[in-house]
Computed example of a mutant assay.
Amino acid sequence: MAQQVKAVVAHAVGEPVRIETITVPDPGPGEAVVKVQACGVCHTDLHYREGGINDEFPFLLGHEAAGIVESVGEGVTDVAPGDFVILNWRAVCGQCRACRRGRPWYCFDTHNAKQRMTLADGTELTPALGIGAFAEKTLVAAGQCTKVDPSASPAAAGLLGCGVMAGIGAAINTGNVGRGDSVAVIGCGGVGDAAIAGARLAGAERIIAVDIDDEKLRTAIRIGATHSVNSRKEDAVERIRELTGGFGADVVIEAVGRPETYEQAFYARDLAGTVVLVGVPTPEMKLELPLLDVFGRGGSLKSSWYGDCLPSRDFPMLIDLYRQGRLDLDAFVTETIALDEVEQAFTRMHEGRVLRSVVQF
């Protein structure tokens, strides 16, 4: 039987979000209903509200979530009612050319639930990243549910569903950071700090945090950076080179998504080094680099989409590291809030006052 639950809905560009009663249908074939326990407030949700993703209003916001599977539809075998899961927005198809080549983290045909959740009047909702987890319960494709150890804190575990996984994966999966490497991370918000945590996990010897905010740099040091650079006060490229014997970092991770910071990343890397773009640019942004420099410096220029993660592989592993005390996911949870505090959380996030606000049910 369909259920009515409370949820956060964005109705128009720039309008404050509202708490609405929505209808969650019973799961159909390949689908699952999840009782949400916690959901992080991510900048992508604000992008949705501001019309920066598309114009398919009304949006059911929220996507960095963990919870308990309540029911599953026909044909679902990987998860069952009662399982503690992290939600992801990359339910791989298993059939596309990437999946068939053994690279499912690049799946070109990921999918979401076929049914739509609705407002009380029947208006269909567009769930953020196919999840919509600022809600007491949500409907997703079963492949969007990754079973993990239930002893993990839902508030911490849910963050792997987006920003923290994006940062850790940018370092480990995309950047291939290895033992003894030098790494610079430009932009120390939630994703950048997660990249720092990922570099530390991978055994990087020197991890340089770059930002224009001293408080963010202090947080980056607590997360695992060995050095910090305030690029408002000094030349970031020159300082990174000074800290790496004059050469530049082996891997530079750009977690801002702006042309000027990407250019810093490009010139702050060592010859044959790697640049990883994980910050999300806006459509109008353009990048201009001398082609001779691109050729002459060698190395790799990569983009990292969702940390090139495979949830079924990466989420359980990272939760195990969290339980062992080797990955401090709790450090990313600045505050826990109620469902009706999401709008205020957007303001604090925009002002850079939090790593993550987490809605806790």
Rank of each mutant, 00 (worst) to 15 (best):
G130H: 05
C145L: 10
F332E: 04
S151R: 15
V359Y: 14
L339S: 05
R348Q: 06
R97W: 13
A98P: 00
A113R: 02
M317G: 00
D270N: 15
G30W: 12
L289F: 05
C99G: 03
E64A: 00
R348S: 05
L159G: 01
T118M: 09
I221R: 15
D235G: 03
V358I: 07
F295K: 02
P154K: 05
I221W: 07
C188D: 05
V278S: 01
V148Y: 09
A331W: 10
I22V: 15
A249D: 10
A65G: 09
P27T: 12
R326I: 00
T347K: 11
I207S: 07
G187Y: 13
A152I: 10
A197F: 08
G73M: 06
R101I: 00
A195M: 02
I22L: 10
R179G: 00
R297W: 13
S303V: 15
V191T: 05
I172T: 02
A236Y: 12
V69G: 08
R100K: 15
H11T: 12
P283N: 06
A91I: 06
Y262L: 15
A220I: 07
A141D: 13
Q3S: 14
G246H: 09
G189D: 10
V251T: 14
L355E: 01
H43I: 00
P290A: 04
G257A: 11
P25C: 06
G161P: 10
R116K: 15
R97A: 11
S151A: 15
V79R: 02
G246E: 04
E351N: 14
L321Y: 08
Y267N: 11
D340M: 06
V8R: 02
R49T: 13
P127F: 11
M117V: 09
G14F: 09
G279N: 07
G14T: 06
Q115N: 13
S357F: 04
F361K: 02
A135W: 10
G158D: 11
L318K: 01
H11E: 13
C93N: 02
E136Q: 15
E234Y: 10
G40L: 09
K114N: 04
L327R: 09
H111R: 14
R206C: 13
A204V: 13
Q360A: 14
I253D: 12
P154F: 12
D109L: 06
T123Y: 13
L329A: 11
I68V: 15
V229T: 05
G187F: 13
V354H: 03
A225C: 11
G198L: 13
G67P: 08
F84W: 10
A202K: 04
V275F: 12
R269P: 12
R18S: 15
A249F: 10
D250K: 12
T23Y: 01
D83F: 06
G122R: 07
E215Y: 09
G257Q: 11
V185P: 06
H63R: 11
V256R: 05
A128N: 05
F295V: 15
R103W: 01
E242F: 03
V24S: 03
L243E: 02
V24P: 01
E215K: 14
G273R: 09
L139Y: 07
